[in-house]
Write a protein that binds this DNA or RNA. Sequence first.
DNA 1: TTTGTTGCAAAGGGTTTGCAGGAGA
DNA 2: TCTCCTGCAAACCCTTTGCAACAAA
Lengths: 143, 143
Amino acid sequence: MRQTPQREGILRVLKDSDRPLTVEEIWERMAEKRSGLPTVYRNLERFVRQGWAESILGVDQVMRFVRCDSRHHHHHLQCERCGRTAEVDACGLEDSLRQLEALSGFKITAHQLTLFGLCARCRASAEPGAERRPGEAGHEIDR
Amino acid sequence: MRQTPQREGILRVLKDSDRPLTVEEIWERMAEKRSGLPTVYRNLERFVRQGWAESILGVDQVMRFVRCDSRHHHHHLQCERCGRTAEVDACGLEDSLRQLEALSGFKITAHQLTLFGLCARCRASAEPGAERRPGEAGHEIDR
DNA sequence: TTTGTTGCAAAGGGTTTGCAGGAGA
DNA sequence: TCTCCTGCAAACCCTTTGCAACAAA
Protein backbone atom coordinates (compact mmCIF):
# COMPACT_ATOMS: atom_id res chain seq x y z
CA MET A 1 0.00 0.00 0.00
CA ARG A 2 1.49 3.22 -1.17
CA GLN A 3 1.97 6.27 0.94
CA THR A 4 0.30 9.32 -0.49
CA PRO A 5 -0.43 12.77 0.90
CA GLN A 6 -4.13 12.02 0.67
CA ARG A 7 -3.84 8.92 2.80
CA GLU A 8 -1.70 10.67 5.33
CA GLY A 9 -4.21 13.47 5.39
CA ILE A 10 -7.14 11.22 6.11
CA LEU A 11 -5.34 9.39 8.86
CA ARG A 12 -4.19 12.65 10.37
CA VAL A 13 -7.69 14.06 10.45
CA LEU A 14 -8.95 10.95 12.12
CA LYS A 15 -6.15 11.02 14.63
CA ASP A 16 -6.73 14.67 15.46
CA SER A 17 -10.39 14.18 16.14
CA ASP A 18 -11.76 12.89 19.39
CA ARG A 19 -15.03 11.91 17.87
CA PRO A 20 -16.20 9.97 14.84
CA LEU A 21 -16.41 11.94 11.63
CA THR A 22 -18.54 11.57 8.55
CA VAL A 23 -16.88 11.16 5.19
CA GLU A 24 -17.65 14.72 4.34
CA GLU A 25 -16.30 16.04 7.62
CA ILE A 26 -13.06 14.23 7.02
CA TRP A 27 -12.89 15.63 3.54
CA GLU A 28 -13.53 19.17 4.76
CA ARG A 29 -10.78 18.96 7.31
CA MET A 30 -8.12 17.94 4.85
CA ALA A 31 -7.28 21.60 4.52
CA GLU A 32 -3.87 21.73 2.85
CA LYS A 33 -4.15 18.90 0.41
CA ARG A 34 -7.83 18.39 -0.06
CA SER A 35 -8.58 15.39 -2.16
CA GLY A 36 -11.66 14.35 -4.03
CA LEU A 37 -14.52 12.83 -2.13
CA PRO A 38 -14.19 9.51 -3.99
CA THR A 39 -10.62 9.24 -2.76
CA VAL A 40 -11.79 9.64 0.80
CA TYR A 41 -14.40 6.93 0.32
CA ARG A 42 -11.95 4.58 -1.34
CA ASN A 43 -9.31 4.98 1.32
CA LEU A 44 -11.67 4.85 4.23
CA GLU A 45 -12.89 1.54 2.93
CA ARG A 46 -9.34 0.23 2.80
CA PHE A 47 -8.47 1.56 6.22
CA VAL A 48 -11.43 -0.22 7.70
CA ARG A 49 -10.46 -3.44 5.94
CA GLN A 50 -6.92 -3.05 7.25
CA GLY A 51 -8.13 -2.38 10.76
CA TRP A 52 -6.73 1.14 10.86
CA ALA A 53 -10.13 2.71 11.13
CA GLU A 54 -13.57 1.68 12.15
CA SER A 55 -16.99 2.71 11.00
CA ILE A 56 -19.69 3.25 13.55
CA LEU A 57 -23.31 4.08 13.09
CA GLY A 58 -24.59 6.98 15.15
CA VAL A 59 -27.97 7.32 16.81
CA ASP A 60 -28.87 9.46 13.82
CA GLN A 61 -28.23 6.55 11.47
CA VAL A 62 -25.25 8.28 9.92
CA MET A 63 -22.01 6.39 9.40
CA ARG A 64 -18.92 7.89 10.92
CA PHE A 65 -15.31 6.86 11.13
CA VAL A 66 -12.80 6.68 13.93
CA ARG A 67 -9.19 5.77 14.06
CA CYS A 68 -8.88 2.37 15.55
CA ASP A 69 -6.50 2.44 18.46
CA SER A 70 -6.89 -1.03 19.74
CA ARG A 71 -6.93 -4.03 17.55
CA HIS A 72 -8.52 -6.23 20.13
CA HIS A 73 -12.18 -6.62 20.84
CA HIS A 74 -13.76 -3.41 22.06
CA HIS A 75 -16.84 -1.26 21.89
CA HIS A 76 -17.72 2.37 21.69
CA LEU A 77 -19.29 4.72 24.11
CA GLN A 78 -20.81 7.68 22.34
CA CYS A 79 -21.74 10.90 24.03
CA GLU A 80 -25.16 11.97 22.87
CA ARG A 81 -24.40 15.59 23.48
CA CYS A 82 -20.93 16.29 22.14
CA GLY A 83 -20.46 13.24 19.98
CA ARG A 84 -17.16 12.25 21.52
CA THR A 85 -16.53 8.58 21.85
CA ALA A 86 -14.52 6.44 24.18
CA GLU A 87 -13.32 2.96 23.55
CA VAL A 88 -14.32 0.35 26.04
CA ASP A 89 -11.92 -2.50 26.33
CA ALA A 90 -13.72 -5.18 28.22
CA CYS A 91 -17.31 -5.76 27.43
CA GLY A 92 -18.19 -8.06 30.27
CA LEU A 93 -20.66 -9.70 28.01
CA GLU A 94 -19.04 -13.09 27.82
CA ASP A 95 -20.98 -14.71 30.61
CA SER A 96 -24.28 -13.44 29.36
CA LEU A 97 -23.46 -14.73 25.91
CA ARG A 98 -22.80 -18.24 27.18
CA GLN A 99 -26.14 -18.18 28.93
CA LEU A 100 -27.85 -16.99 25.81
CA GLU A 101 -26.31 -19.74 23.74
CA ALA A 102 -27.73 -22.34 26.05
CA LEU A 103 -31.10 -20.67 26.01
CA SER A 104 -31.45 -19.97 22.32
CA GLY A 105 -29.53 -22.76 20.67
CA PHE A 106 -27.57 -20.18 18.74
CA LYS A 107 -23.82 -20.41 18.46
CA ILE A 108 -22.86 -16.79 18.93
CA THR A 109 -19.86 -15.85 16.86
CA ALA A 110 -19.87 -12.09 16.95
CA HIS A 111 -21.60 -9.20 18.56
CA GLN A 112 -21.85 -5.54 18.02
CA LEU A 113 -22.49 -3.23 20.91
CA THR A 114 -22.74 0.51 20.98
CA LEU A 115 -23.39 2.46 24.12
CA PHE A 116 -24.95 5.88 24.20
CA GLY A 117 -24.93 8.35 27.02
CA LEU A 118 -23.39 11.46 28.46
CA CYS A 119 -19.66 11.79 28.85
CA ALA A 120 -18.19 13.00 32.12
CA ARG A 121 -17.57 16.40 30.66
CA CYS A 122 -21.06 17.02 29.36
CA ARG A 123 -22.48 15.57 32.49
CA ALA A 124 -20.65 18.16 34.55
CA SER A 125 -21.31 21.11 32.29
CA ALA A 126 -24.99 20.50 31.88
CA GLU A 127 -25.57 24.14 31.18
CA PRO A 128 -28.64 24.87 29.09
CA GLY A 129 -28.11 25.74 25.45
CA ALA A 130 -25.20 23.39 25.21
CA GLU A 131 -27.14 20.65 23.54
CA ARG A 132 -25.46 19.18 20.53
CA ARG A 133 -25.97 16.18 18.36
CA PRO A 134 -23.33 13.78 17.16
CA GLY A 135 -22.02 15.28 13.99
CA GLU A 136 -22.20 18.82 15.15
CA ALA A 137 -19.24 20.61 16.55
CA GLY A 138 -18.28 19.61 20.04
CA HIS A 139 -16.62 21.65 22.74
CA GLU A 140 -13.72 23.97 22.31
CA ILE A 141 -11.41 21.06 21.90
CA ASP A 142 -13.32 20.03 18.84
CA ARG A 143 -11.29 19.12 15.72
CA MET B 1 -54.35 5.84 11.87
CA ARG B 2 -56.48 4.51 9.06
CA GLN B 3 -56.67 0.93 8.08
CA THR B 4 -55.78 0.35 4.46
CA PRO B 5 -55.12 -2.78 2.42
CA GLN B 6 -51.56 -1.60 1.90
CA ARG B 7 -50.90 -1.35 5.61
CA GLU B 8 -52.46 -4.70 6.28
CA GLY B 9 -50.34 -6.13 3.50
CA ILE B 10 -47.10 -4.84 4.90
CA LEU B 11 -47.87 -6.04 8.41
CA ARG B 12 -48.91 -9.42 7.05
CA VAL B 13 -45.69 -9.86 5.12
CA LEU B 14 -43.69 -8.99 8.19
CA LYS B 15 -45.70 -11.38 10.30
CA ASP B 16 -45.30 -14.21 7.82
CA SER B 17 -41.55 -13.87 7.68
CA ASP B 18 -39.24 -15.33 10.25
CA ARG B 19 -36.41 -13.07 9.30
CA PRO B 20 -35.89 -9.38 8.72
CA LEU B 21 -36.78 -8.14 5.25
CA THR B 22 -35.57 -5.24 3.19
CA VAL B 23 -38.03 -2.67 1.96
CA GLU B 24 -37.89 -4.15 -1.48
CA GLU B 25 -38.44 -7.68 -0.23
CA ILE B 26 -41.51 -6.56 1.64
CA TRP B 27 -42.78 -4.82 -1.43
CA GLU B 28 -42.23 -7.87 -3.63
CA ARG B 29 -44.12 -10.09 -1.26
CA MET B 30 -47.22 -7.97 -1.24
CA ALA B 31 -48.52 -10.10 -4.08
CA GLU B 32 -52.24 -9.39 -4.26
CA LYS B 33 -52.35 -5.74 -3.52
CA ARG B 34 -48.92 -4.51 -4.37
CA SER B 35 -48.44 -0.92 -3.48
CA GLY B 36 -45.92 1.62 -4.55
CA LEU B 37 -42.49 1.54 -2.99
CA PRO B 38 -42.97 5.00 -1.45
CA THR B 39 -46.00 3.70 0.38
CA VAL B 40 -43.94 0.90 1.86
CA TYR B 41 -41.30 3.35 2.99
CA ARG B 42 -43.83 5.71 4.47
CA ASN B 43 -45.66 3.05 6.40
CA LEU B 44 -42.58 1.27 7.60
CA GLU B 45 -41.41 4.52 9.07
CA ARG B 46 -44.67 4.91 10.91
CA PHE B 47 -44.72 1.34 12.11
CA VAL B 48 -41.28 1.78 13.58
CA ARG B 49 -42.36 4.98 15.29
CA GLN B 50 -45.41 3.22 16.65
CA GLY B 51 -43.37 0.31 17.89
CA TRP B 52 -45.06 -2.20 15.60
CA ALA B 53 -41.91 -2.89 13.66
CA GLU B 54 -38.24 -2.50 14.17
CA SER B 55 -35.39 -1.79 11.83
CA ILE B 56 -32.17 -3.67 12.23
CA LEU B 57 -28.91 -3.32 10.41
CA GLY B 58 -27.45 -6.55 9.08
CA VAL B 59 -23.80 -7.53 8.95
CA ASP B 60 -23.97 -6.50 5.31
CA GLN B 61 -24.93 -2.97 6.36
CA VAL B 62 -28.37 -3.30 4.86
CA MET B 63 -31.42 -2.15 6.79
CA ARG B 64 -34.14 -4.70 7.31
CA PHE B 65 -37.43 -4.74 9.15
CA VAL B 66 -39.03 -7.13 11.57
CA ARG B 67 -42.36 -7.19 13.27
CA CYS B 68 -41.86 -6.19 16.84
CA ASP B 69 -43.34 -8.78 19.14
CA SER B 70 -42.22 -7.45 22.46
CA ARG B 71 -42.45 -3.86 23.42
CA HIS B 72 -39.98 -4.16 26.23
CA HIS B 73 -36.23 -3.92 26.02
CA HIS B 74 -34.75 -6.66 23.90
CA HIS B 75 -32.07 -7.48 21.36
CA HIS B 76 -31.73 -9.51 18.24
CA LEU B 77 -29.84 -12.64 17.48
CA GLN B 78 -29.18 -12.95 13.78
CA CYS B 79 -28.22 -16.16 12.06
CA GLU B 80 -25.37 -15.48 9.70
CA ARG B 81 -26.36 -18.32 7.44
CA CYS B 82 -30.11 -18.21 6.99
CA GLY B 83 -30.78 -14.71 8.23
CA ARG B 84 -33.42 -15.74 10.71
CA THR B 85 -33.53 -13.75 13.89
CA ALA B 86 -34.58 -14.43 17.43
CA GLU B 87 -35.49 -11.92 20.03
CA VAL B 88 -33.57 -12.01 23.23
CA ASP B 89 -35.48 -10.73 26.20
CA ALA B 90 -32.97 -10.19 28.91
CA CYS B 91 -29.68 -8.74 27.94
CA GLY B 92 -27.78 -9.36 31.15
CA LEU B 93 -25.81 -6.28 30.43
CA GLU B 94 -26.97 -4.21 33.31
CA ASP B 95 -24.21 -5.12 35.71
CA SER B 96 -21.52 -4.54 33.15
CA LEU B 97 -22.99 -1.19 32.34
CA ARG B 98 -22.86 -0.05 35.94
CA GLN B 99 -19.22 -1.05 36.07
CA LEU B 100 -18.52 0.82 32.88
CA GLU B 101 -20.16 3.95 34.16
CA ALA B 102 -17.91 3.97 37.16
CA LEU B 103 -14.89 3.35 34.99
CA SER B 104 -15.54 5.78 32.20
CA GLY B 105 -17.45 8.57 33.85
CA PHE B 106 -20.15 8.19 31.23
CA LYS B 107 -23.77 8.12 32.20
CA ILE B 108 -25.05 5.38 29.96
CA THR B 109 -28.58 6.05 28.82
CA ALA B 110 -29.06 3.62 25.98
CA HIS B 111 -27.36 0.76 24.26
CA GLN B 112 -27.70 -1.11 21.07
CA LEU B 113 -26.64 -4.73 20.85
CA THR B 114 -26.86 -7.12 17.98
CA LEU B 115 -25.65 -10.67 18.17
CA PHE B 116 -24.53 -12.70 15.19
CA GLY B 117 -24.09 -16.42 14.99
CA LEU B 118 -25.53 -19.68 13.80
CA CYS B 119 -29.04 -20.68 14.72
CA ALA B 120 -29.72 -24.15 16.08
CA ARG B 121 -31.04 -25.28 12.74
CA CYS B 122 -28.09 -24.19 10.65
CA ARG B 123 -25.76 -25.44 13.27
CA ALA B 124 -27.23 -28.90 12.91
CA SER B 125 -27.45 -28.95 9.16
CA ALA B 126 -23.96 -27.70 8.54
CA GLU B 127 -23.90 -29.37 5.16
CA PRO B 128 -21.56 -27.75 2.65
CA GLY B 129 -23.09 -25.63 -0.07
CA ALA B 130 -25.78 -24.40 2.23
CA GLU B 131 -24.09 -21.11 2.93
CA ARG B 132 -26.37 -18.17 2.69
CA ARG B 133 -26.17 -14.58 3.61
CA PRO B 134 -28.82 -12.53 5.32
CA GLY B 135 -31.01 -11.28 2.56
CA GLU B 136 -30.76 -14.35 0.44
CA ALA B 137 -33.34 -17.05 0.54
CA GLY B 138 -33.34 -19.09 3.68
CA HIS B 139 -34.34 -22.67 4.18
CA GLU B 140 -37.39 -24.38 2.78
CA ILE B 141 -39.58 -22.43 5.11
CA ASP B 142 -38.45 -19.25 3.54
CA ARG B 143 -41.11 -17.21 1.85
C1' DT C 1 -67.79 15.20 3.36
C1' DT C 2 -63.53 15.49 5.42
C1' DT C 3 -59.04 14.30 5.85
C1' DG C 4 -55.54 10.94 5.72
C1' DT C 5 -53.41 7.78 2.21
C1' DT C 6 -51.85 6.26 -2.16
C1' DG C 7 -49.49 6.27 -6.71
C1' DC C 8 -46.77 8.24 -9.90
C1' DA C 9 -43.01 10.60 -11.41
C1' DA C 10 -39.50 13.40 -10.38
C1' DA C 11 -36.08 15.16 -7.23
C1' DG C 12 -32.54 14.29 -3.88
C1' DG C 13 -28.33 12.94 -1.85
C1' DG C 14 -24.88 10.02 -0.55
C1' DT C 15 -21.81 6.55 -2.65
C1' DT C 16 -19.60 4.18 -6.49
C1' DT C 17 -17.52 3.64 -11.05
C1' DG C 18 -14.85 4.48 -15.42
C1' DC C 19 -11.16 6.28 -17.23
C1' DA C 20 -7.25 9.08 -18.30
C1' DG C 21 -3.57 11.55 -16.19
C1' DG C 22 -0.27 11.59 -12.35
C1' DA C 23 2.93 10.04 -8.94
C1' DG C 24 4.92 6.55 -5.57
C1' DA C 25 8.63 3.12 -5.37
C1' DT D 1 9.32 2.16 -15.68
C1' DC D 2 5.50 -0.01 -13.82
C1' DT D 3 1.72 -0.04 -11.14
C1' DC D 4 -1.14 1.97 -8.07
C1' DC D 5 -3.64 6.08 -6.88
C1' DT D 6 -6.14 10.25 -7.76
C1' DG D 7 -9.50 13.46 -9.78
C1' DC D 8 -13.29 14.42 -12.36
C1' DA D 9 -17.65 13.63 -14.04
C1' DA D 10 -21.08 10.70 -14.70
C1' DA D 11 -23.66 6.86 -13.22
C1' DC D 12 -26.13 4.53 -9.51
C1' DC D 13 -29.29 3.40 -6.30
C1' DC D 14 -32.00 3.84 -2.52
C1' DT D 15 -35.02 7.02 -0.40
C1' DT D 16 -37.88 11.07 -0.18
C1' DT D 17 -41.06 14.60 -1.90
C1' DG D 18 -44.89 17.01 -4.45
C1' DC D 19 -49.18 16.70 -5.96
C1' DA D 20 -53.50 15.19 -7.70
C1' DA D 21 -56.69 11.33 -7.36
C1' DC D 22 -58.71 8.22 -4.09
C1' DA D 23 -60.85 6.03 -0.24
C1' DA D 24 -61.42 5.33 4.91
C1' DA D 25 -64.42 6.92 8.51
